[in-house]
Design a protein around this nucleic acid. Sequence first.
DNA 1: CGTTATATTGAAGTGCGTCAAAAAGTGTGG
DNA 2: CCACACTTTTTGACGCACTTCAATATAACG
Lengths: 239, 239
Amino acid sequence: MIEKLLLKLRARDAVAPEEEEALLGAMGEVEDIPARKTVVKRGETLNRSMLLVEGLMCRFKDLRSGRRQITALHVAGDFLDLHGFTLKHLDHDVMSLAPCRIALFPHDRLTRITEERPHLTRLLWFSTNLDAAIHREWELSLGQRTGPSKAAHLLCELYTRLQIVGLIGEGRFDLPMNQTEFGECLGLTVVHTNRVLRELRERGLAHFRNGKVRIYDMERLRAFAEFDPTYLYLAALAR
Amino acid sequence: MIEKLLLKLRARDAVAPEEEEALLGAMGEVEDIPARKTVVKRGETLNRSMLLVEGLMCRFKDLRSGRRQITALHVAGDFLDLHGFTLKHLDHDVMSLAPCRIALFPHDRLTRITEERPHLTRLLWFSTNLDAAIHREWELSLGQRTGPSKAAHLLCELYTRLQIVGLIGEGRFDLPMNQTEFGECLGLTVVHTNRVLRELRERGLAHFRNGKVRIYDMERLRAFAEFDPTYLYLAALAR
DNA sequence: CGTTATATTGAAGTGCGTCAAAAAGTGTGG
DNA sequence: CCACACTTTTTGACGCACTTCAATATAACG
């Protein structure tokens, strides 16, 4: 159940067998969630955090105009709201994009980890700091990159993150969301997102449609996106 | 030296006297930094984190085109790179905007805190999670708000954050940066930033020039910006 | 095989960028 | 106290990336 979490953590630091045990011991119920279901609403009091075991989830904030910004995407092995452990409630919603499986980690058990396992605590803390690093890269994309470059960059990021947890095959991966949602990650409307994706396709870089991504030329895609995976803090920079 | 940090933390949770002592005990050297000096470069190995005691600092990332995104602003009482404690190096630069005073916290002393003081550890963890919450709000601004709305929102945020540490007087505060830098927070060029600020002025909302902000009408400014301070996680929602 | 979600295209409008220059403010040295 | 250099703010003209509105095509699904 926590294999992908361990793959993710071990791509950054050593996890001792007894820490692995402690994580397993902190895990509670497992739930299956249908696609497009909100699992946490902003402001609601939290007493557990969720690990995404399988599927794709997002976090988002919206304006009264109806415009919505997806602030984070989460793949298998990611905690969805570990930050909720110290924040106690969230400033955003958390929603599934595809059918998902999640595992719950009661906060009292996480508190015990902070009391008994300083190194594991720092690992979990690291994990929320990694989320923040990704937020910063998205700020850079949202504020400064052009449409095509943002889109290419996001595809590179997802490729790298999915590769760590073994979900990439032959330059392809599943991205079970539609172009509206993809655009909501990039701060673009669907119409423009569609045009931007067409450009990536016509340039022979990548293809995204119907929840499937096909990378045509990773080297050129990375160059085009100015993608530097340093911000993903991979200890052994696996490409 | 850590008074403003304590004001900031106590606006969110109780800090016991012995925790205050522990923080003081973890503090090392104090340094004065001139304006516009880079204090951490991306990638450099860190063995201490910095608390901003006085002044204004920013973190930023840039593209080869020269376009730069400021991903965070920091006021007195903020840690600048507490996330560097678990990340070991940063994905961005940290730079002073005005002359600043900083206090260094060696990482080995922070490690001891994680070994001996779980509640204080969670408070420090919270503090990095608060930074991430602000990143998310900036993602929303960068991706979805219009120029004038972004600018108004940032002024509201800074007003609130500065108020917590006692740096607001009579609807005015110092913001020692120029319009180029203000624009780099918003993903706008100087030229457009200037026009956006003119609009806020002409609407009778706020004025920013030469490092000084004057709020003309806070109620209307907040409404205009759709500013909801929930994301700043103030326990007792002080306005 | 119809129904609904998703992707795609066209045309027109606009917010913001770019380029260029002027105006205003700030600091320094004589 | 003024002259000069530099930084910061402001304005104008023009172009383009992205939005909006509207419609059509294509795929997914019971």
